[in-house]
Amino acid sequence: MVKLLVDNIEVEVDEGKNLLQACLDNDIYIPNLCYIDGINRVSASCRLCFVDIEGVDQPVTSCTVRVEEGMVVKTDTPPVRRLQRTALQLLLSVHVVDCGHCPANKKCELQRIARFLKIGLKPKRLEQFLKEPGIDTDHPFLDYYPNRCVLCGRCVHVCRNSRERSFLAFARRGFDTIISFYGENEAPDLSCGDCFACVEICPVGALVPKEKEVP
């Protein structure tokens, strides 16, 4: 066990534990979207879980840090909040904010993080960019909404873990990156059954079971 100081609270956790997980375990919330507990190599792609660590110049993502004895961590310094707010605003600038019609409403991680960081869901600072088309219905059991997706990659990971290969993958690049059901010809043969692990792990309701498939 090692002791560290997070926001002036002394926390005792297993040596070598992931800092983000250590904080979450001790009821210290740090915004995060892409983190999965126990994963071999974290994705570190959502860029939300920044913290300040004493002795390190700039905020670092807590999911990529292992705890050390005597570590002094601050989760709410102005530089940390600045990066977190920008990251969330960027995510919201490509997000259809139509919570009333979204199945994730009230359990959506974006709503939770926006509340936590005290920013509105419709930021005025940035223009909104949406992808076309707004829905991908190629999958036999699922619909995918690229304008809700935060591209955290949790669905890709969980799908790969529940079978020998993932039925979901990242496709395209840059701003056009989406989650794709590889390849389109195979889609009807996908043997997803009633797995829906991807739907469960999606933080924002970007993957939704097709209506007819829901019992």
Binding site: L90, L91, R173, T177
Partner: peptide, 11 residues
């Protein structure tokens, strides 16, 4: 040419 992985670079 961004790979689209992380929020800052992609958006």
């Amino acid at each position: 040419e961004s790979c689209g992985k992380c929020t800052f670079c992609r958006i």
